[in-house]
Design a protein around this nucleic acid. Structure first.
Lengths: 213, 213, 213, 213
DNA sequence: CATGAATGAGCATTCATTCAT
DNA sequence: AATGAATGAATGCTCATTCAT
């Protein structure tokens, strides 16, 4: 069918793609609030404004919808982080830019971020692989910048860039979500400033390294 | 037989308290692996070695069991963190000690930690208040140390101790869970060393602070 | 719409309405025999020839089914009583006709009548309002005839038409149910004759006893 | 067992008898409000102020408690009705006295009366026999008076005393319960006056309407 | 006599999934 | 491409009953 395509709003993609998109939007919101298990297909369909059968017609099932949702949302995060810093930027600035991009992204996609954290260590779920891969990609972008710093000798000695990437990732997500949840009125810059201060410990390099037993 | 006091381990508490304890142990494990929704009351009862009705007799329902479980496990975390540093310790060392205690605690109570992160930002659940309170307490211990540092002038200027506490908390939990999940064979010291490096940025204070707009 | 109407049996109403009707039929019988509490949703669904979930899909729950059932059956009773006497009939005859209609109705809808009496004074049930309303309507029809009699001066002095209506209602239902339960073989006319005799006390007033065929 | 055996029942009563009595009181109230099925042993025990096990110790089970309750309450009703009219009284007055006694009894034992009506036609319950017997006794008292009237020639011709007894019984119970439920503030005399008017149709025979104070 | 913790069969309810339209 | 009535296996919960104290 698809009679018209005159002007409504989505230049191409047809009815089907529009339906899928509405289901995604409905699902992220609901699941991030209530959790996967507590969210019913009925609710998703209702919020999306379609009949329940439509979910099955388009995705085949609840868990498939969830997996598709993860992939959809996650590729956005990775892309955002990758595009945050121009390859030419000095590593220290690039790192700062990546973290800021992370904060901004989470500010704009809270629901997705909540989902990610909720599922991050639930290793026996069907979609664990997807979630893990997403996190790996995001952390990889951060660790990549840390390695560039290390190559310049600007990174404190003895720092494991993998672990440190994971630490920064957790730090960014935690701070950003607490910000959205508890103090959404604060300007994003204040959030980012605090994070920037904290990364300086790593970056501040060679000089006056305090001792650790 | 042997209903108490010989030596087994719970000198007092009576039959009922013992039953509740076994249900807690069974529930943390199951729920952290599968999630709340995917864990059935049957499973919990079976693993605890009691009849299903006993769960209802003791807690009133599945969600109440979960809430009680949170409170139970969480007071442990807060206590552990509070006891980590002697009040007499210099702030910088105290902070380090608290973070290490956090890593160790998570290493020993993975299940609980996973639960905590999974629920941390799920604001419309019945038990959100409990979870939030727990996090607040834990973060409070960290922020408290940061404030002691600030009082000494050892904290980098312009750091919001509340936000920074939340950042350190997220960092610790994330790194610790990634460690347990992905590289459980690494010695805890390596984990802690990375975290310690990262806190130096805050602590290392006034000296060679790079600028941020 | 209404594509079909060929012949199957339910010219209008659609699949859903047919299902609801079968559930009603199944439920009255079962509940009037066993009581509400002792009747399971499984039994109702089985007798109706549908799956258990269908009860929930159509009514939302057991008690809602019960309430809907009451409303359904009860509007029938009220209608029957209202139609029993032509407005033009003299009041004395009209009253007799209404009571006879009541007896006949109960003879044909025992199950419903039992339900009504069982719930009539159970004031704290969810469906009490429905039951009460039904009784009020039925009693109202009777009281209405008594008022017509009073207007003609044919009613014994000092009779409260409201109370008397309730008395006649109770009398009719009790006699009719005892008849069906204990002596179902007796012809309906014998039952009605006894009732007619009893109303004469009200109607006969001072003067002459009206005849009954 | 059965140590004590002084006479038959309770000149004294000891702890046990007191406990049973409190359970009766608790049970009638609860069951008449909610119905048998909806009333739990827990509730009964709680209202009676005893532990749940005590119900089982004293009665053996829920249904046995219910049966015992019926027998206890019902013998009271029959006794009250039998004692209402002195054997020497003229039949017409005796009938009036019996009905008045019924109204008064129900006014004072609403809960029991509700129970009776709720179970009256539920033929497949374990306690149906008990209920039926009670009703038969009560109706028998009424019918007995009608027969005395018939013997005197004071009863309208063609009235079946059995059916009429049932009719009067239903009338009395219905009016009395509606009175307690809907207009408890009305004086009992008004209720009784209406009933007395209605019986005159039977009694007044062909002649003149008897007076009522 | 009485208690109350524990039990488990039974039941109401939920919800992902199917399928005829 | 979408719908929504129907399904039934799975699950949370209730509650009469038991029993060790």
């Amino acid at each position: 069918m698809d009679r018209m395509s005159t002007s409504t709003e989505r230049p191409r993609s047809g009815r089907r793609e529009a339906t899928r998109h509405r289901l995604f939007e409905a699902a992220v919101g609901l699941i991030s609030e209530q959790g996967y298990g507590a969210t019913t297909v009925d609710e998703i369909a209702e919020r999306a404004g379609v009949a329940k059968g439509t979910v099955y017609y388009n995705f085949g099932g609840k868990s498939e919808l969830y997996t598709a949702l993860m992939e959809w949302g996650v590729s956005r995060l990775a892309d955002t982080l990758k595009d945050a810093a121009p390859p030419s930027a000095p590593p220290a600035e690039a790192l700062t830019a990546v973290l800021r991009a992370g904060v901004v992204f989470i500010g704009e996609h809270e629901a997705l971020a909540r989902l990610l954290m909720a599922e991050a260590w639930r290793t026996n779920q069907a979609w664990y692989a997807t979630v893990r891969q997403i996190r790996t990609e995001a952390i990889g972008v951060i660790s990549g910048q840390l390695e560039r710093l290390a190559a310049e000798g600007a990174l404190r000695q003895g720092v494991d860039t993998g672990l440190a990437g994971s630490a920064l990732f957790g730090m960014v997500v935690t701070v950003a979500l607490d910000w959205r949840t508890l103090q959404p009125e604060r300007p994003v810059e204040e959030i980012h400033a605090t994070l920037a201060h904290m990364t300086d410990g790593l970056v501040g390099a060679s000089s006056s390294a305090p001792e650790h037993a």
